[in-house]
Design a protein around this nucleic acid. Sequence first.
DNA 1: GGGTGCATGTAATGGGTTACATGATTCT
DNA 2: AGAATCATGTAACCCATTACATGCACCC
Lengths: 193, 193
Amino acid sequence: MEVLLGVLAIEPMSGYDLGLTIRHSVGHFWNESYGQIYPNLKKLASEGFVSCKTVRQKGKPDRHIYSITEKGRERLKKWLTVPPQPEIPRNELLLKLFFGEQVPTEILIGYVERMANEHRGLLELLERTEREEIDNNQHYPGAPYWKMAAHFGQMEMRAHLRWAEETLAELKKIASKRRKRSEIRQEKRHAGK
Amino acid sequence: MEVLLGVLAIEPMSGYDLGLTIRHSVGHFWNESYGQIYPNLKKLASEGFVSCKTVRQKGKPDRHIYSITEKGRERLKKWLTVPPQPEIPRNELLLKLFFGEQVPTEILIGYVERMANEHRGLLELLERTEREEIDNNQHYPGAPYWKMAAHFGQMEMRAHLRWAEETLAELKKIASKRRKRSEIRQEKRHAGK
DNA sequence: GGGTGCATGTAATGGGTTACATGATTCT
DNA sequence: AGAATCATGTAACCCATTACATGCACCC
């Protein structure tokens, strides 16, 4: 809801563009689906927080360009001054790892490797975005804040990658132990026959 | 849903105890409310994934002790072998910081300080839990996995604290710049009078 | 007397994702 | 010809939190 106001405070745009802009600016820590964006824009418009101009297009449906109003800016500021409450994120990977005993270690190794690859990619993306997007908008007063948010993501990703390395080493140790144990079991079974 | 099975695979217990156990074992990356736990236990029981024994108590309501069944263990294993899909966590602090331009810098400083304090506390808790809970259960085959999950939280918290330091320094720079600018404005207004 | 902890549960409410529907244009 | 992109939106559904309801025991 308030992301929409925040982005529209930077620049008026359509619902579709809001989706794209949100994805590649705050996408690494906040996302909104179109099933959320369109109804919320309508609601914000009906309550006077945003205004809407309709632009005709040939072939395509009309574009609705939304702009934030004074009332909208006030609402945004009011929301910004409410202390954010801490939220416990849900991490399915960690949960599955926590119960990892129940499952072959190779599976867990796959999960951690996959996560590491994803986060490596995300880290690169964040670094690139910082260089290209934020540094090219140094004149804009919001740029320092964008940088802080981007840095958060970068530092988190690097921590995750370090953890993944450490954890993969540990998992591989466990895997080889397990293999040895099952080999011994096999031998005993052979001997017992 | 599956957390319940996972915890019950370690030890049978009541819904109430599940809530407590989840909070202080996987609480830093997963949480379930009682409004979720009780109905889900009922559902799991009706589908044969857990069994339930009722224990009478004087004064207090009957305790329902749930145990995982063979069918439940199979379901847990099946779930564990489904690759976790990456989830984008929502971070309200970062979002507010991203739009920080719109609001006095002091407010943002307060948010970041508060977050740093919280995460410092959480880090200590995680370190303590690792020493007390996990190391005391070294015999249990799940312990190494618990340790990995705990380490994830620790490394993340430490990264957040480093970020908070860096960010606070930056925010304080911005705050002093802003103060100077507003002093100049004040002087000009006086001179203009 | 009032707060906290034990112990269970239900119901309203809200938030969000997914799937669906439409339809033209552009790329492969 | 078929997929993808542009562009809007609705509706069903799922999930989750919150608040409510009950009631005893214990402590200050």
